[in-house]
Amino acid sequence: MDNTAENYQQKTFAGRYDRLAEIGEFIAQAAKNAGFDEDAVYTLQLAVDEACTNIIEHAYEGEGKGKIECICDDDEDELIITLHDWGKAFNPENIPEPDFSVPIEEIESRGAGLILIKKIMDDVKFKFSPEDGNILIMVKHKKKEEE
């Protein structure tokens, strides 16, 4: 395993909505370096934006309460994005998936972020410990070369 500076990027951001653009740029750069196409770069940014919004809203319960550490690990076959926060336990898998097939007036404005994360990423893992906070690991496989 060779974790050179090029394929392992780590950066910590303040848990504020006005930092989401900067987090997005960090992820976009890592995704481009990992060889993802333009569409995938966009959706990876989107998945991370949704996850960070959830961290600020649910784990920290507000802006400016703590940090978000982002790690992009560019492996041979996949890009592993880890988000680490020190807020209260927030397991996205415990949130029920909303039903958007109902009429618009019955729609509650929540839950789309998690749907996006699950659809965009190939694998999502969650860990929590009282000492170390929440760790969300999101994996995106690289497409194989034309066969």
Partner: peptide
Amino acid sequence: DFISSAGVWTLMETQKECRK
């Protein structure tokens, strides 16, 4: 150039209000 679900909900809530 970018819209997250927070932005989509703004549009959804407005659409709900307008379509009443």
